[in-house]
Simulated assay, not measured.
Amino acid sequence: MTEEEILAEFRAADALLEGHFVLSSGLHSPRYLQCARLLMDPMRASRLASALVASLPRDIRSSVEIVVSPAMGGLIAGHEMGRALGVEAIFLERPTGTFELRRGFRLKPGQKVLLMEDVVTTGLSSGEAIKAVEQAGGEVIAAAAIVDRSNGVAQFDVPFFPLISLSIPAYEADKLPPELAALPTEKPGSRAAA
C-alpha cells in the first residue's frame, strides 16, 4: 500500500480529524487519527494489517510466535496482525495504571513477540508495554504500528515498523500556537491524559 492509499483509508473512515485534541500523552495536536473508526470495518482492518505484515522483513515475519498489543487502542490492530501472521494475539491492560497480562493470558519463557500498536505518538506506552511483555517472560523482537506520528521521537530497543509515518505537530500545553489555543479542546482517546 502506498502512503496515499493508506491516507485514503483514513479519509474513507472519517478517521483523520481536525481541531484541538489532547492526546493520551498529554500533548496537544491540531489533528487526530481515530484508529477505532479506521479499524471498525473488518475488511479495512484486514487490508491494513496484511499490508503491514508484507512490509516486515522476512526474518521478523517468520520469527513472530505471538502478537501482544496494549488495550484499548491496540486491540483490533493486534488481533488483525495475529490473523495476518497466522499466530495468536493477546493484549495487555492497565487495571492499576501499569500494563499487565490478565484474563488467563500468559507468555511462554522466551516466546517471540511482536508488539502491535495502532498509533505511536511519543513511544512511552509502547516502551511500558515492552517492559510488561519482558516481565511476563516474552521476548519482544519487534514493534509495529499502523501509524507513527512521533516525528522521530519514538525510539525502542527493538526494530520498529510502522505502516505509515506522518508528520503531525504535537505541543506541550504551555507551548501552543495561538491558532490552536483559540480552539476548544477535545479528548477523543481511550484513556485520560496522565
Rank of each mutant, 00 (worst) to 15 (best):
A144N: 02
A84S: 15
G110I: 10
A132T: 06
E9G: 05
V64M: 04
L39I: 03
S62F: 10
P70L: 03
F156Q: 02
E65T: 14
L75C: 10
Q111T: 08
G86A: 14
P109R: 13
M1G: 10
A45C: 07
L23Q: 02
V68K: 00
L180R: 04
G138R: 01
F99S: 03
S62Y: 09
R31N: 14
A145W: 01
E88T: 12
M43T: 14
S167I: 08
A129V: 05
E186S: 15
Q135F: 10
E179R: 07
F10S: 02
P169T: 08
M81Y: 00
S165L: 01
L85R: 01
G19T: 05
H28N: 15
G123K: 00
L183H: 07
I130A: 04
T122G: 13
G110T: 08
S25W: 11
G97A: 13
G86K: 03
A132F: 06
A13K: 04
A12E: 10
P109A: 15
E179C: 14
F91K: 01
P188I: 12
A194I: 14
A154Q: 04
P159W: 05
Q135R: 10
G73M: 04
P42C: 04
L39C: 11
G19K: 03
A15Y: 02
F99P: 00
R149Y: 09
V140A: 13
D157M: 11
L7G: 08
P70M: 10
R149H: 08
T98L: 15
D148T: 04
A71E: 05
L85Y: 03
P178M: 05
H20W: 09
D14Y: 07
M43R: 14
V153N: 12
L166N: 10
A71N: 10
L56E: 00
R47G: 11
L176M: 13
L48R: 01
M116C: 12
P109Y: 11
L85N: 04
G86V: 06
G104F: 08
F156L: 07
M40D: 14
